[in-house]
């Protein structure tokens, strides 16, 4: 069973079944640990409220981190790359056509048509 499901990649192999078995075992352990916890936690009162150093909890929309703020550091660090590449996507049809024909001319040179 396990042998026929092994993906041969020429130099190596990969068997999803072993991975899944490992996954299931990890899940069983996680479940066992979870079982050891409190069976019936309180659903109301102070226990479920977030504790923010005694400050009142802000509104839901105020604590949500929107997607635009993620990876700010990444784009900031690669500023040199992004300031060059993003403006290429200018949205102007003429530029798109130029790139297309330019690449075609370049490959013509590469293949050896235009010397």
């Amino acid at each position: 069973m396990a042998a026929i499901m092994t993906l041969q990649t020429g130099t190596g192999f990969w068997n999803p079944i072993i991975w899944i078995i490992a996954f299931v075992i990890a899940f069983v352990f996680a479940y066992l640990i979870w079982m050891l916890g409190e069976k019936d936690p309180k659903k109301t009162g102070d226990l479920i409220r977030p504790y923010l150093s005694g400050n009142p909890e802000p509104a839901k929309e105020a604590v949500h981190v929107p997607g635009g703020n993620l990876y700010w550091g990444f784009t900031e660090a690669l500023q040199g790359y992004y300031t060059r590449v993003v403006p290429l996507h200018s949205g102007i049809l003429t530029d798109y056509l130029l790139w297309f024909l330019g690449v075609m001319a370049f490959v013509l040179v590469l293949v050896g048509v235009i010397v």
Partner: peptide, 14 residues
Amino acid sequence: KVFHSIFMGPKLPE
């Protein structure tokens, strides 16, 4: 990032 910003976080009122 996409997963976080679409599905995670508190339920938004809108």
